[in-house]
Design a protein around this nucleic acid. Structure first.
Length: 200
DNA sequence: CGGCCGATCCACT
DNA sequence: GTGGATCGGCCGA
């Protein structure tokens, strides 16, 4: 039923986190959580550029129990709790020792919409999934799923679903909610789909 | 050890 | 437009 190809390690371990954040647009994020399959096309991402990026948890090479996940090799999930309530899903990139990550901020639901509705407590709209806290809620993921292996896990992974997002439908802006990051708050590290998703 | 605050969302005014 | 929910990480004393 589903012949889509899961993204492999070579996709995640590349050095340019901005390129990966851009290329994740249109990819299909799938979760098989609580025995339920849900999936969405990624529509919004943000890049976090490691120890030199003031907006990153790993700024200044701050390696703690929490940020240690980002120091692992690319291809795993970094999920942490924000505002005490929301679990935020990131994709760890680059090689082991370099704490790069891409925050998944938005998805367009394509499978398991009824499951998603139940998880969120009401019917989802077509544009549901905007906002990183909502992404994890729809997919049934929490910070307990931190470090899940996107390449080998049967709980959460990302695959190429033959969705093409042309450059003229990609909007690039500064990141959200990172005012504390000084001049780095202005960097154009946020990528979002503007307009139609084109399925081949 | 205490206190502040964050890569947010939603209900309510 | 705004404030409440809710908790772990981090910093300063």
């Amino acid at each position: 039923m589903n012949a889509y190809k899961r993204l492999q390690e070579t996709f995640y371990t590349r050095g340019d986190v901005l390129t990966i954040a851009r290329e994740l647009l249109g990819k299909q994020l799938v979760s098989f959580s609580e025995g339920q399959l849900t999936a969405g096309i990624i529509t919004e991402t943000e890049a976090y550029n490691g120890i030199i990026d003031k907006a990153s948890h790993a700024y200044g090479d701050r390696r703690t129990k929490r940020t240690d996940t980002m120091y692992q090799g690319g291809g795993i999930a970094y999920i942490y709790l924000c505002y005490g309530i929301h679990s935020l899903l990131n994709v760890v990139t680059n090689i082991s020792g370099i704490p790069h990550a891409v925050l998944i901020r938005g998805i367009y639901p394509v499978a398991g919409q009824e499951i998603m509705s139940r998880r969120i407590g009401r019917k989802i709209s077509a544009k549901e999934g905007i906002g990183p806290g909502k992404v994890t809620k729809l997919l049934g993921l929490t910070y307990a799923d931190d470090r899940e292996d996107l390449i080998r896990s049967n709980k959460v992974w990302i695959e190429d679903a033959d969705v093409l997002i042309p450059d003229n439908h990609v909007m690039i802006t500064p990141r959200i909610g990172v005012g504390y990051a000084g001049e780095d708050a202005l960097l154009p590290y946020r990528f979002m789909v503007d307009g139609k998703i084109i399925k081949l």
